[in-house]
Design a protein around this nucleic acid. Structure first.
Lengths: 196, 196
DNA sequence: GGGAAATCTTGTCACCGACAAGATGGCAGC
DNA sequence: GCTGCCATCTTGTCGGTGACAAGATTTCCC
């Protein structure tokens, strides 16, 4: 029978601690960035003891890798949705940037391998899935290039959206950008594909 | 008279501790990234007590802000040199990426405001100087755009080089890129300005 | 040459991540 | 329906870290 503890109403087993910890991590990172993240703080937010997270993630790098994996999966879902709906590489790019802003905590962890547990299977799979999504997006180009050109086209498209998103998140871009993020994204990406 | 301490030869005053700590920080960050940086480790590397760094930088955020400022100054110097020598925006972009790789430790700290002491005067000035350099680089374009077009041109150029550099540093780019980083950079940047 | 100020040290505190050992309770198999 | 296994969670502990305080040493400047 549960809840014999001093803390009223809280059963010994949390129920879904793993999910609660990941949600708490998103919250904490949105508040103060991934550098300031503390496992003990997450445990407090979830109402469990300071050592509870260990069982689910091993260590801090394990938790961040799991969070990154969740991020890559959300990311692939979102971009696939946009691709099926619009079939436009520019719109996928706009979605890339919007994802970074709307899922800031996930995004800030996804591309920081120094924070991840090495050889994290779930993360590797999720990252691969997201990569596949981007490659499929490139194929939507009407005059899809081939050979070396295709490599450079892919790299430049990825670079421009990733750079814009990163600079925006770091607060490096001028404030006017905030007023119309999608519009600015479209204009910036458009310059890469403009026929001129 | 100096060197009465147990540690032979080491005077009480270091001489140039500030510079030594910044150099140690570069070394430490190159080894294990900015997240793993520890002030006490830097103090050990410099051969001083664990509290010595406080006087020069206030706290950890102060040290990282100083390192970022140093980075922005090196960065502006390097890009100005390239601009004067080549007058080419593409080459400035290649230099941007090469700087990120060759001064990885500095670069990884420069665009991470969450790590910086807020309102750090030296950093603000250095960042402004670097921004000025980039703007001057844009003006080298033969058909330099004006008005809103100029804003988007600047944003897209900055985004593409910054994104490429960031992805490369994070190990997200395929290994072939390593073989010819400058060539790949040029090809990627070239797609943005290609007349097509 | 003497005192003020800069520089560095020692000592301490709260917090953190990791680990170990034990408590709790769900659950499968009988 | 009971029993034992095992996932889950707690408590306790250790070394390391950042920040601060107070004191020691040295330089600098008048």
């Amino acid at each position: 029978m549960g809840a014999k503890n001093a803390a009223v109403g809280r059963p010994y087993h949390h129920g879904d601690l793993r999910r609660a910890l990941l949600a708490a991590a998103v919250e904490a990172i949105e508040e103060s960035g991934p550098a300031a993240l503390s496992l003990r703080d997450l445990a407090r937010r979830a109402g469990v003891s300071h050592a509870a997270p260990t069982h689910h993630f091993g260590d801090k790098a394990g938790l961040l890798a799991a969070l990154a994996a969740e991020g890559f999966n959300l990311f692939a879902d979102e971009l696939n949705r946009i691709r099926e709906r619009t079939g436009s590489l520019v719109e996928i790019g706009v979605g890339y940037i919007r994802f970074a802003v709307e899922h800031r905590a996930h995004f800030e962890v996804m591309f920081r391998p120094d924070l991840h547990a090495p050889d994290h299977a779930e993360l590797t799979a999720a990252r691969e899935r997201a990569g596949e999504t981007l490659r499929a997006g490139l194929a939507t180009l009407p005059d899809a290039p081939t050979g070396a050109d295709a490599r450079f086209a892919g790299l430049s498209a990825w670079s421009i959206v990733h750079g814009f998103a990163t600079l925006y998140l770091n607060g490096a871009l001028p404030p006017e950008v905030d007023a119309d993020l999608d519009g600015t994204s479209r204009a910036v990406i458009g310059r890469l594909f403009a026929p001129r």
